[in-house]
C-alpha cells in the first residue's frame, strides 16, 4: 500500500516538475494575488496587518483550486485514468498519493508566500512552530478534500466551474481556522492558535476518511 502511494505521488510530482506549471504559473499567480490585495486595500499598513492571515489563506484556496485542476487534468488526458484502473492500484492509495503530491506543491507555494507577506505586508512571525504546523495541517486538509472533489468532477463536462463552487464552500472552515491560527502565529490577535489547529486536524481527518472511502466508487464511474 505504501509503495503504491509513493508510486502515485512520485509520478504526479515528476510530471509537475517536468511541466514546471507550479513554478512558472501557480507561484507567480499567488504572488500576484497577494500584491493585488495590497492595491485593493490601498496599501494601508494597519489594514494589511490585520488582514494578512485571511488574505494569505484566501490566496492559498485559489492556489489549491488550480493545483487540483492540474492534478485532475493529468489523469483525464489521453485516457490515463484508465491506465490507473487497469494497473490495479487500490483507489485509496491513488487518493492518498495524489493528495500528497498536491500537498507538497501547495506547501512549497505557501512557504514562498510567507516570504511575500513578510515583505509586502510587513508581517512579523511570533511563533514559527505554530506557523509551520498550521501550514502543514491545513495544506493536508485542503489537499484531501481537493483530491476527492477533483476525482468527483473529472467526468463532468463543466468541471472547471463546478470544482470551485463545490470546493470553496467546503473549505470555509479551513479558511476560518487556518486564518485564526495564523493570527496567533503572527501575533495579530490573542487567540489560541493551537486549538484552531486541532479543528483543522479534525476537518482533515473527516474529509480524508471520506476520500479514501469514496475515491473507488468515483474512479469507477467513467
Amino acid at each position: 500500500m505504501y509503495t503504491d502511494i509513493w508510486l502515485v505521488a512520485d509520478k504526479d510530482l515528476r510530471i509537475e516538475w517536468r511541466s514546471r506549471v507550479a513554478l512558472s504559473q501557480i507561484l507567480p499567480f499567488a504572488l500576484t494575488v497577494l500584491v493585488l490585495f495590497g492595491f485593493a486595500l490601498n496599501a494601508n499598513r494597519e489594514v494589511l496587518t490585520a488582514a494578512t492571515s485571511g488574505l494569505f489563506w484566501l490566496t492559498v484556496l485559489f492556489v489549491a483550486v488550480v493545483a487540483v485542476q492540474r492534478s485532475t487534468a493529468i489523469e483525464t488526458a489521453d485516457g490515463a485514468r484508465r491506465a490507473l484502473l487497469l494497473a490495479g492500484i487500490e483507489p485509496s492509495s491513488v487518493f492518498v498519493g495524489k493528495a500528497l503530491a498536491i500537498a507538497v506543491q501547495v506547501l512549497g507555494v505557501e512557504i514562498l508566500m510567507v516570504g511575500g507577506v513578510l515583505v509586502f505586508y510587513g508581517a512579523t512571525v511570533e511563533s514559527f512552530p505554530l506557523l509551520l504546523a498550521t501550514c502543514v495541517v491545513a495544506t493536508l486538509a485542503i489537499a484531501a478534500s481537493g483530491t476527492l472533489l477533483g476525482a468527483l468532477v473529472a467526468g463532468v463536462r463543466a468541471r472547471e466551474t463546478v470544482l470551485p463552487i463545490l470546493l470553496l464552500p467546503l473549505l470555509a472552515p479551513v479558511l476560518i481556522a487556518a486564518s485564526r491560527a495564523f493570527d496567533d502565529a503572527l501575533g495579530v490577535l490573542a487567540v489560541d492558535g493551537w486549538a484552531w489547529l486541532g479543528l483543522l486536524a479534525g476537518f482533515g481527518v473527516v474529509n480524508a476518511l471520506l476520500g479514501t472511502l469514496a475515491y473507488g466508487p468515483l474512479l469507477e464511474e467513467t
Binding site: I15, D78, G79, A83
Partner: peptide
C-alpha cells in the same frame, strides 16, 4: 488493453 488513446502520461 490497447485502446484508441494510449493511456500514457505525456510528461513522463
Amino acid at each position: 488493453l490497447l485502446g484508441h488513446d494510449t493511456a500514457l502520461y505525456d510528461d513522463l
